[in-house]
């Protein structure tokens, strides 16, 4: 998902604030960032269309709130990036300490663990750190 700078800032704002309308968001950013109410309104609309904000109409104005908590949103973003490089392994373009796989079962992990323990049993201990 591609997010603009202001979109990221507005999202962060909604993770700290439960509900707000465009005027309240504008008032918050007016001093620190400047810009116009129109810019804020279109940013809120884009975030709503991307499914990152929810909104309910109260009177003439929309009341916005975050669609996902921060942790869940970042988790999804990580999945987007990692899924992008693991669905087709040939196209992996990140470098990771752990290969992200669900196919290594406990039995395979245990087999590898035994291999390491056997190595430890015959190799003199070395202090770490």
């Amino acid at each position: 998902m591609n997010l603009g700078e202001l979109e990221k800032l507005v999202l962060k704002y909604f993770w700290q604030t439960d509900v707000a309308d465009a005027k309240q968001v504008y008032a918050y950013f007016e001093t620190s960032r400047g810009g116009t109410l129109n810019t804020i309104q279109s940013t809120l609309d884009r975030l709503f269309k991307k499914g990152l904000l929810k909104r309910d109409k109260e009177g003439h104005a929309f009341q916005y709130r975050s669609a996902k908590p921060r942790k869940a949103f970042i988790g999804d973003l990580i999945k987007d990036v990692t899924q992008d490089f693991t669905v087709d392994d040939e196209d992996s373009i990140l470098a990771a300490f752990a290969s992200i796989s669900t196919e290594l079962n406990e039995q395979q992990f245990n087999k590898l663990e035994k291999l390491i323990k056997d190595y430890r049993a015959v190799t003199p201990a070395v202090k770490v750190g």
Partner: peptide, 27 residues
């Protein structure tokens, strides 16, 4: 440590990813 991190990562992503093309590679 490598094994531990792989074990934790594997649990975290269980059911999320398409397995067919990369399981052999990962093992």
């Amino acid at each position: 440590t490598l094994l531990k991190v792989n074990r934790l990562a594997s649990r975290s992503f269980k059911g999320v990813l398409n397995n067919e093309s990369f399981c052999y590679y990962a093992v």
